[in-house]
């Protein structure tokens, strides 16, 4: 860990001013990922701008029937907030699938969006990693890649995005409101995280001088037919091998609207319009679920150790859609898969 300065932002404008004036500075809120990365010399900010006391801690209804969430609402508070539990149980569930209660108590909503990959090589400064050190090479492509991506990979990086919450937000089509020196702008969730391409060091399209202020959810919450199904190497406190956020609207047995987002398979929460379109108008049965899964995975690419993820993802999608269609969402606390 390097020596760094510490400053506390007095308001959002002050935070933006401070980050814009120092490209080597970083915001800190819960610090659940940043501090670990600093201890390992992966992140080396010269200055930490503490935003944890900014007034971005409310969850409020919008005029449009949705909800707007302050970027500094702790993950636990968000997951147990009545508005979220009632209208967006998918989001509540996705949050509870991640990390541990202690970490969720510390982690902020905005910070969760900016989690960095858990690729082994990214964390070990003794190894080449294009994400940590652009141009140094990707160790995972030829190395240990059991945890790595099967969709949207590039020759430069096959890391995955680690968040569970973001998979839920992707399925719910959240919007991210940000503030920069030039004022506010809104990024649709689909565009918030990036694929690695030739620039794997960039995880998101958030500019370095911008701050996430709020996350907005549209009215549609899929509170009846949803699930967040996370498959991992132990039953809690592990990153996803594959996770699936599934949300359906049904008319009788027919799917009228479908959302499907995957975690643990790509550099961002993975959605595929074709797979979702293939579900609309179909009966909510195993055949249509399997077809959607196959469509979503049609371009999946395997590496030495993660070929199993393709079949696992296919099965997890089918299972998640079944859970959603039956209205029996996965519990995050009962120690078994439903």
């Amino acid at each position: 860990m390097i020596d760094f300065e510490y400053a506390r932002a007095s308001d959002v404008a002050d935070a933006v001013r401070r980050i814009a004036s120092d490209p080597t500075a970083k915001f800190i809120a819960g610090g659940t990922n940043l501090i670990d990365l600093m201890k390992g010399n992966v992140e080396r900010p010269s200055r930490l701008i503490d935003i944890s006391r900014l007034p971005l801690k409310t969850v409020e209804k919008t005029a449009a029937g949705g909800v707007v969430i302050g970027a500094l609402v702790p993950n636990s508070d968000l997951s147990y907030h009545p508005l979220i539990e009632q209208q967006y149980p998918l989001l509540a569930s996705a949050i509870r699938a991640g990390a541990s209660q202690q970490l969720r108590n510390m982690a902020s909503t905005g910070g969760n969006l900016l989690q960095r990959t858990r690729c082994y090589y990214f964390y070990d400064t003794a190894t080449p990693c294009n994400k940590r050190e652009p141009g140094s090479g990707c160790s995972a492509i030829k190395g240990l890649n059991r945890m790595h991506a099967i969709l949207g990979t590039s020759d430069a990086c096959i890391a995955t995005h680690p968040s569970d919450m973001c998979v839920g937000l992707a399925a719910l089509e959240a919007k991210v409101h940000v503030m920069g020196p030039g004022g506010e702008r809104t990024i649709v969730f689909e565009d918030f995280h990036r694929l690695p391409g030739e620039t794997p060091h960039l995880d998101t399209n958030l500019h370095p001088d911008e701050i996430v202020t709020t996350i907005e959810l549209p009215a549609r919450g899929f509170a009846t037919n949803y699930t967040y199904l996370k498959i991992r190497d132990r039953l809690s406190y592990a990153f996803a091998l594959v996770s699936v956020a599934a949300a359906l609207e049904l008319d009788g047995g027919t799917i009228t609207e479908a959302r499907l987002a995957l975690g643990g398979v790509a550099h961002k929460p993975w959605r595929d319009p074709a797979a979702e379109a293939a579900l609309r108008g179909q009966a909510g049965d195993q055949t249509s679920f399997a077809r959607a899964a196959d469509l979503l995975l049609r371009d999946a690419k395997r590496f030495a150790h993660n070929a199993f993820k393709i079949d696992l993802a296919r099965r997890a999608i089918v299972r998640a859609l079944t859970q959603a269609a039956q209205g029996t969402p996965q519990s995050q606390s009962d120690k078994k898969i439903r």
Binding site: Y121, D124, A126, T127, S139, K142, G143, L144
Partner: peptide, 11 residues
């Protein structure tokens, strides 16, 4: 888990 190219424990 050892990356045998690097000879290094990774997890």
């Amino acid at each position: 888990l050892i990356d045998h190219d690097l000879g290094r424990i990774m997890n």
